[in-house]
């Protein structure tokens, strides 16, 4: 059990938390934050797990660090894109959740919009 493994287990916990948050929260911003927490957890696992054991001295595997850097950029891009979309979505509809009643025009009257939970994704 090296110190690096602690990071990995921290990542595991973050991952689980992010996952739960993503499923349970319906506000889009919160969902996005939960996604980012999940992402951070995975990056931690990637870096922490990569350097366990072996002969190499700890902290000296540059590959996962580079991977995580790439991963972070991708996650940042995706987050930024999602934010732009959410802002515009909010601007157009005034909604912060992906509610279902207006999913398409085909289901209009047979649902009571009040009775439905704005679901998790």
């Amino acid at each position: 059990m090296s110190a690096h493994l602690l990071y990995a287990f921290g990542g595991v916990v973050l991952c689980g938390m992010g996952l739960g948050g993503f499923i349970l929260l319906s506000h889009l911003l919160r969902k996005l934050l939960a996604f980012n927490i999940m992402g951070s957890g995975i990056f931690l696992i990637l870096v922490g797990l990569a350097q366990h054991g072996g002969g190499a001295e700890p902290g000296m595997d540059p590959v996962p660090q580079a991977l995580v850097l790439t991963g972070i950029v991708v996650a940042v891009s995706a987050t930024a894109l999602a934010l732009v979309l959410i802002r515009r979505y909010y601007y157009l509809t005034g909604q912060t959740v992906l509610e279902s009643s207006a999913e398409s025009g085909r289901r209009n009257n047979d649902d009571d919009p009040g009775s439905r939970k704005d679901g998790a994704l």
């Binding site: 059990m1 493994l5 990995a8 287990f9 595991v12 696992i45 797990l49 366990h52 054991g53 072996g54 002969g55």
Partner: peptide, 8 residues
């Protein structure tokens, strides 16, 4: 993760 960490 624990399993994987057991072997280099």
């Amino acid at each position: 993760v624990w399993d994987i960490a057991q072997t280099p």
